[in-house]
Design a protein around this nucleic acid. Structure first.
Lengths: 340, 340
DNA sequence: CATCATCTCTGCATCGTTGCAAAGGACGGG
DNA sequence: CCCGTCCTTTGCAACGATGCAGAGATGATG
């Protein structure tokens, strides 16, 4: 039942515990004769190191935690995939937790009884926790923030350049000749910094093109979910003068918006062009397929993981603010042509 | 830098280590006077229990691992969400790993140097590992299998009734008056047991309705991905006599199939009706929205977690074969009416 | 032949926590 | 006034592994 320990193996092989440990780890040279004997005992007893004990002794767990609002949001699932892959190349495994955008749950993570102490570090994609809280609560555990929020300079941070990304998406629509361009997803309050950056980029693009910003066309949504995109689009269609294009702050909003358009019999992109952000796989196969600004998720994951490991081993003390690349993927929802 | 330990707190409060431990755990009564003094010291030093040490001592880690082929497949992401939630109600956290359907990676999980020993148990959704291998390799670590494969009676197992689910999906199509019904997703080889069950249900439905099974209409796919569904549908459209309905073995295949149909100008459901399996959120917002057989993922997760915990504490020794409920969600891809 | 360097191998202490058993003090009953 | 009981508090050992320093054997060197 219980797994065998170094002691069991040592007894069986007639050597000291320490020698067995040396054979297992291979760090210290062991004579051929003993090695063979110990190896045999290891095999016979099917020894597996107790990693909890090893971690205690070594002071490291080899685990990092990735905390996202919702795992069933495709962007986070795809990001999680990349984080797991990136961590593996460094010999780390990833514990996943979700907060459901619940501030209390996020706070709990940093509190006294949190499991966070079990991990060497934390990758956190905060939704509703504020910068101050985070600063106050984060004791000792190395943290790297992903995507959301900015927290100017207090924390390591990895994200795309949201202003530029939003501007490019909007410029793409302008380049198609659209003039009445809506935006779905603004969040004009303290925890909506990412959304606000995208609004900034959207406005920049309009202003540079000499277009006026119509506040009626900026529809806020508390979260980035399909159904909220659908509702926002209903509001836009109800306007006396509906838009001829929509920039959605993420792909789920865009897909919700297209859902509403399909029901209403509005043609995409002929009547209204749609562009999203996130580059999720779902958008490649939607009807029509979705034009999107795709962050390089693998790059985000790699940067985040290696930054975090840098903090853990003390080689990266000063908070960095890394920008990951992104690119515009033009598909049917703006271009129309059914090619992929 | 380094967190404070029970010893530090004990020294500061002028009591024994054990008393501090008692205050922290609250299991043994402590006098008010000492409790106050210790609590003050705890707060001042911002003590956080070292969970690695605690786990070593208690012989439990409070962690289970969930291993899925791919986290960016929506079904697994949605399932993972439920598993994390279910585990939390039992005080457990979940480590997530993905195997990319790589048999070696799955095998590695059960091998000598695996991290699996760090977890109290394993929820495994195997893709390419065989029953024998699993039986041979799984030593000691409690395992519950999810969804895929059957492994008659050797392991705890939780899944929907695949035969019934497939039969109901097919019967739904038959009920709509369709007579030439294709199937996408068969896997006629040892690791494709789930797919084979769905094929069985499909055939049962046809036979009961007195329809003949046309082997040309059963298109196998090595995996359940969107692009494979798209390719399979191309093959079906190229037939001299294309189908008037398709039963896809999961929603991603169905979405890929609909993608092909949209490009080819074939109307769904008028020309070809489509039904999938998995009930992923993506299908609610696709155009047209997707009819699907939705497993109760929360129920699967709850059952799997509580079964696993039962194995861990020794109260559930005999392998069980739990069937989770499922239900048919009829949407536009078969019914047509644009209501939801 | 004595001495020293080298190479294996070992025992002990330790990581931070909790189980166990017993010490110490307070208290009530006979 | 003494003894037994109960309650709080404590020290020791242990979970299973690794770091360290040193023991013993072997070979090289003067």
């Amino acid at each position: 039942m219980a797994g065998s320990t170094l002691r069991d193996v040592a007894r069986r092989a007639g050597v000291s515990i320490r020698t067995v440990s040396n054979v297992v780890n291979g760090s210290v040279p062991v004579s051929d004769e003993l090695r063979v004997r110990v190896q045999a005992a290891l095999d016979e007893l099917d020894y597996r190191p107790n990693l909890v004990a090893r971690n205690l002794r070594r002071g490291r767990s080899g685990m990092i935690a990735l905390v996202v609002p919702e795992l069933d949001v495709p962007y986070f699932a795809e990001l999680a995939r990349e984080v797991i892959t990136a961590a593996r190349t460094h010999g780390y495994v990833v514990m996943l937790d979700q907060t459901d955008g619940d501030g209390d749950r996020e706070r709990e993570l940093l509190g006294r009884e949190s499991r966070a102490t079990m991990f060497d570090g934390l990758l956190l994609s905060p939704l509703s926790i504020s910068a101050d809280e985070l600063r106050r609560r984060t004791n000792k555990v190395p943290v790297v923030l992903l995507g959301e929020h900015i927290f100017n300079g207090s924390f390591h941070h990895v994200a795309i350049d949201n202003i530029v990304a939003a501007r490019e998406a909007t410029e793409h629509l302008i380049g198609l000749g659209r003039r009445r361009i809506a935006a779905i997803g603004d969040q004009p309050y303290s925890t909506g910094e990412t959304a606000q950056l995208r609004t900034t980029g959207y406005r920049q693009a309009l202003e540079r093109a000499g277009l006026t910003v119509d506040r009626e066309l900026i529809v806020p949504t508390p979260r980035f979910h399909r159904h909220l995109g659908a509702e926002a689009m209903e509001r836009l269609l109800a306007l006396p003068e509906p838009p001829d294009a929509v920039f959605c702050y993420n792909d789920l909003l865009a897909i919700g918006a297209m859902h509403t358009l399909a029901r209403a019999g509005v043609r995409v992109p002929e009547d209204i062009a749609v562009v999203g952000v996130d580059g999720i796989q779902e958008g490649r196969y939607s009807s029509p397929s979705l034009t999107t600004v795709a962050p390089d998720k693998a790059a985000i994951a790699r940067t985040a993981v290696s930054t975090l490991l840098g903090v853990i081993d003390g080689s990266a003390p000063a908070p960095t603010d890394a920008k990951a690349p992104h690119r515009l993927l033009v598909r049917q929802s703006t271009r129309g042509a059914p090619v992929d």
